[in-house]
Structures are given as C-alpha cells and as structure tokens.
Design a binder for these strands. Structure first.
Length: 287
DNA sequence: CCTATCACCTGCAGGC
DNA sequence: TGCCTGCAGGTGATAG
C-alpha cells in the first residue's frame, strides 16, 4: 500500500525516466481506471505532448503532460513499469511476450516517441487516473478537501484544532486525508507507536501536547521511510519499476505477537474501523 | 455538519 | 486435491 514515502519514491523514479519524453499514443485497456473512461479523449489531450514534470501531494501524483495534469493515485497495488525496448505494441494482446499473469493486470500505457513505454499495472484495479487542465487542478474540489502534509509549515496546534471537537478514534483520524495527508495503514500504526498513544483513543480526549507529539512522530516516521526509499529503483531485464518499497524498519505493523522493541510485550493486533491495527498494549496506553 | 458502512477488485492463506 | 471463506486496505458514494 503505497503511502507518502513510497509515492515520493515513485515520483522521483518516474521523473528520471519520463520527463522530457513525448507521448506518442495512450492506450486504456480497462476504461474504469480513468475517470474520463474514454480512450479517444485521453489520447486527444495527451498524444504528441511533452512530459514537463511530476509533482506529488499526499499520495497523489500530478503528471504534467502538454497542458494537462494526469492525476494518478496508486491506491493499493498500482505500479508503474518502464519498458526500454523499442515497441510498437499498441494492442493489449500484443503484451503476450510477457507472462499472462502479468499482462492481465496492465490497464494503461503511455507510448513515447523514443520507443519506450510506461505501463500501469494494478492487480486489484483500485488505482485511478483523471485528466484535469494543468492550471486548474489546484482549484478542484478533491484537491481542496485534502489536509496538510506533516512536513508543511503548520502551526503547532493544527492537529489539536482539527481533532479535539471530533469523536472518532485516533487511528481513523490519522487515516483521514482531510486531516493529515500521506499516512496510510502502516505509518498510521507506526505514528501511534512512536507517540505512545493507543490507536483507539478518542480524538476528543487528545491533549494539545498529544497532538503536537503526533505531528512530530508522523514526521519522524515518514522521514525515516523517505530516507530508506530514496534510492530504490528496481531493474529487471529490459524494464524498470518503481513501487517505492524498501527495507524499512517497522516497529509494530506486521509484527503481531513479536516482542515490542521497547518493553518486550507481544505486539497486539486488533481491528479499528475494519482495518488491521498493530500496537503495544504496554507502551501505548488508552486515554 | 457529522459518523458509519459498503462497494470496488483480485490473490492468497487457512480450514476441512 | 479442491472448494469455500475471509482477509488485505484507500477512497468515494451512500445511508442514517
């Protein structure tokens, strides 16, 4: 599940590879993955246009192509692959040179004029793309509703002001992109652990000090992950992919029943709002 | 406005 | 072996 650090790693890798290239043709093999759901329209807006830059906000990527922003969200399992070989395979069945188990999950492709191809691969088809004029995306409602990244220049009481009047669990609050941008299930658990707060704590019971600690912890957790992921670009024969994963140190996520690295108590797993949630019942006390 | 729940998808692990 | 169930989880729509 790519979260802010993984998406940033993808952004950096992708920038290195496709900025400066010119789109020759776009293919959409699974129309539901693009909001416009119309390959012809996507093509008319992107083909023969240069890739200028790639920006990121939270878990969203904004790929600047021609006068358009191709907005991408990888959701659970979305990945980009770059194929370097010269290719003219513009029909889905032409990918048969690869394993069927791989090609069946290719839903979107950008063919560049230099013969290289960018593939979007997503086993669960949860990822989404949309096209918005480049000078308009910042005014769109979906963008306006997003909260701030922990690294933004924020007042110390930002989280407290957003949370103390609400009656949800801390875990839900950290996953809410309207509050804090960029945390997903993994780093939400890691942030709770670092701040020594129980994920079931009600946001209305969090003190100003707790909220400040949460902001600091989220920054720490994300920064550590960014550092680990910064140089990770995987290369196979003839293609590259960027999923942003790396050998990152996790204290609680995925460590059910393993001893807590601070106190030795076994890490517990519970469900909060139907999401697997990992914590140390000794270090993270409930308020 | 607020919070809760479900739909979207597929692969895979575990039970029997 | 093979079928069935449940879990994985980010976001947006919908319900209350």
């Amino acid at each position: 599940m790519p979260e802010l650090p993984e998406v940033e790693t993808v952004r950096q890798g992708l920038s290195k590879w496709i900025v400066g290239k010119t789109v020759r043709l776009v293919r959409v093999y699974y129309p539901r993955i693009v909001e416009q759901r119309n390959e012809f329209e996507v093509n008319s807006r992107l083909s023969n246009q240069p890739v200028h830059e790639i920006r990121r906000r939270g878990k969203y990527l904004m790929i600047h192509i021609g006068a358009e922003a191709l907005i991408s969200h990888l959701r659970m399992e979305g990945r980009f692959y770059l194929f370097e070989q010269v290719s003219d395979q513009t029909s889905p069945i032409a990918w048969s040179q690869f394993e069927p188990a791989f090609t069946k999950h290719i839903h979107f492709a950008l063919f560049f004029t230099d013969g290289t191809t960018l593939i979007y691969h997503d086993t669960r088809k949860f990822g989404r793309f949309k096209l918005v004029p480049w000078d308009a995306w910042e005014e769109e409602r979906w963008y306006q509703s997003l909260g701030f990244e922990p690294f933004d220049d924020l007042p110390n009481d930002y989280l407290y002001k957003r949370l103390h009047g609400r009656h949800i669990t801390l875990k839900q609050a950290l996953l809410d992109q309207r509050v804090l941008l960029g945390l997903g299930n993994i780093y939400a658990d890691e942030t709770c652990f670092d701040a020594k707060l129980h994920p079931l704590t009600k946001t209305s019971r969090l003190s100003r000090k707790d909220c400040e600690a949460l902001l600091v912890s989220s920054q720490k957790v994300l920064r550590q992950a960014l550092k680990a992921g910064g140089t990770t670009i995987r290369t196979f024969e003839g293609h590259h992919y960027f999923d942003g994963y790396f050998d990152n140190h996790l204290a609680v996520y995925g460590r059910t029943d393993e001893p807590c690295e601070v106190c030795g108590q076994p890490i517990r797993k519970i469900f909060v709002a139907s999401r697997g949630t990992h914590f140390c019942s000794n270090c993270q006390r409930r308020k």
